[in-house]
């Protein structure tokens, strides 16, 4: 059961017979909406003068990306994205913003000149990427509509992470890695008595 069908299940009763059957077009509509959200908020994150605005733009972008994950059939990942990114990382960033609020840069008035090269670089890269994407065939990909329905991934992922012949080892490594990060971060922010 993909998002489009779910979405159409939700939408059509709401809208009743007013709206024609959008079932076939639902993937496209969803895609574009979600894309607009993600891209728009990403742009806001990029150019918002105040960091707080940027942080919230980031949040919206996270949501948009999560939606896109769902559209792609990765249900587990979409929810995990929201939990971890929005519920964890974004909180961290907001705290960071809070704790460094006194910093002048947070008031964020960039010099225009230093933005231009960045934008140019970005634009250039975007152009390059676009060219690269749309020139290639990717081994003959079909539109989404023609793909089979996605299956639920949670169980499969669970099995994948715990199967010795699949991704158990990296999984354990990542947990150690997280531990390291935890310890490291804690160490870095400990109060130093002798600091000036």
């Amino acid at each position: 059961m993909g998002l489009p069908s779910l979405a159409s299940l939700v939408v059509s009763p709401v809208l009743g017979g007013m709206v024609p059957d959008l079932t076939a077009a639902m993937p496209a509509i969803l895609f574009w909406v979600l894309t607009g959200l993600a891209v728009g908020s990403a742009i806001m994150a990029a150019i918002a003068p105040r960091i707080v605005h940027a942080a919230f733009g980031l949040m919206a972008a996270f949501f948009g990306v999560a939606g896109l994950y769902a559209l792609l059939g990765s249900d587990f990942l979409a929810l995990t994205q929201i939990i971890v990114y929005v519920g964890g990382i974004l909180i961290l960033i907001v705290f960071g913003v809070l704790l460094t609020g006194r910093a002048k840069s947070q008031l964020g008035l960039e010099k225009p000149s230093s933005r231009v090269p960045a934008v140019l670089a970005g634009a250039l890269l975007l152009a390059g990427l676009m060219i690269a994407i749309f020139r290639s065939d990717f081994g003959g990909s079909r539109p989404m509509a023609e793909l089979p329905e996605p299956k639920a991934t949670t169980a499969a992922l669970g099995r994948a992470f715990l199967a010795t012949d699949q991704y158990l080892f990296p999984f354990e490594l990542v947990s150690v890695f997280l531990l390291l990060a935890l310890v490291g971060a804690a160490y870095l922010v400990r109060r130093r008595r002798d600091a000036s």
């Binding site: 993600a38 891209v39 990403a42 742009i43 994150a45 990029a46 150019i47 960091i51 940027a54 942080a55 972008a61 990306v65 960033i93 960071g96 913003v97 460094t100 910093a103 840069s105 947070q106 964020g108 960039e110 230093s114 933005r115 090269p117 960045a118 934008v119 670089a121 970005g122 634009a123 890269l125 975007l126 990427l129």
Partner: peptide, 16 residues
């Protein structure tokens, strides 16, 4: 999204 992120990295002065 990548390029937006890139621009953010390049254009922002704040570490956050």
């Amino acid at each position: 999204l990548f390029c937006a992120g890139l621009v953010t990295v390049l254009a922002r002065r704040s570490a956050v």
